[in-house]
Design a protein around this nucleic acid. Structure first.
Lengths: 165, 165
DNA sequence: TGGGTGCTTATGGGGTATCATGGGATGGGA
DNA sequence: TCCCATCCCATGATACCCCATAAGCACCCA
């Protein structure tokens, strides 16, 4: 119950409300607010807990970060983010221009990404997911290979993998 | 009692429930949840304990990990995986699209793979196993050759190791 | 050695709590 | 006074939990 996991598709009603999946609300703990902003990588909406934003801010203060990246993130993420209230039934109302940006109309797909999650139009997600799976397959990613490979990275070694699968 | 071993075939009842083999539940310790994920290599479902996923998540936070790889894994693995509760009788309910993906209808084969296990349609598994056996035979793999070859690697030596088999 | 006994495991069905979703009511701001 | 946002309540569907039954296995005792 600590990480945002799995994908849930929920309906958007005519008032613009959409339920945040129960398991995601569980990850948020008792928090009745969350942060959303337009994703930098895709036509999707990124979302996270309020306190996650604080940690992101600290990371940004790291002097090793290039200045232009800091500028970019400050503008797009912090400037473009919105704080949303979760109603007693666990629903949120996405701002109009966010819906348009992600192409969301009557359905919204919530995709867990560990510390954050994304909100997609279901159709756009299918397309994106298919492409991602292909790329992952090309990299030979599986539950068992990720750990093995990461450990070798940590050890400084770069065994190219090519495992038996 | 530490590794997922051997293969068990169980029935899927009309509610979609299927028993996790008792020995697998033993490996999970007291954990009442597990993670499932559509395999990238085969039409089967990968499964692991929740804490395995936690370790995977920690590994992903390693700053040496390339950013694009992290994105890919977060989307494919974490977005594509589902957390399933194990009921008091030791059963799980696989999501509809997971069943369809693996071609599972009335039976499910649980295949131990050490730290993870897979769930197959029994018929699809037979086909896959036959193919795997052929490949093993072609590569002259046996339990004793694996150890012998690994040891020689560790020792830095390259004794070509003509397999006994 | 063979039969019986008791436990663990797998499977089936029914009842209940939770969740997603829809509609209506209420209150504050324009 | 009107409109919009929020909150409250109702409902259908689903997921979860509890109990019951049956089948396999190991152990024990005769």
């Amino acid at each position: 119950m600590g990480l945002f996991l799995s994908t849930h598709v929920n309906k958007v009603d005519k008032k613009g409300r959409v339920s945040v999946p129960s398991s995601f609300r569980g990850v948020l703990g008792g928090q009745t607010e969350l942060i959303v902003f337009r994703s930098l990588q895709a036509n999707a909406i990124d979302a996270c807990a309020v306190d996650y934003m604080d940690r992101l801010s600290e990371a940004l203060d790291n002097p090793n970060k290039p200045d232009d990246m800091r500028d970019l993130i400050e503008t797009t993420v912090f400037g473009g983010s919105v704080r949303l209230a979760i109603d007693p039934e666990g629903r949120i109302v996405l701002p109009e221009h966010f819906m348009a940006f992600a192409g969301i109309t009557e359905g919204a797909a919530f995709v867990g990404r560990r510390h954050t999650f994304q909100i997609w139009d279901p159709d756009a997600l299918s397309v994106h997911e298919a492409a991602s799976r292909d790329r992952s397959r090309a990299q030979n990613i599986s539950l068992s290979t990720i750990l093995a490979r990461t450990n070798s990275v940590l050890a400084g070694g770069g065994s190219s993998g090519g495992g038996v699968q």
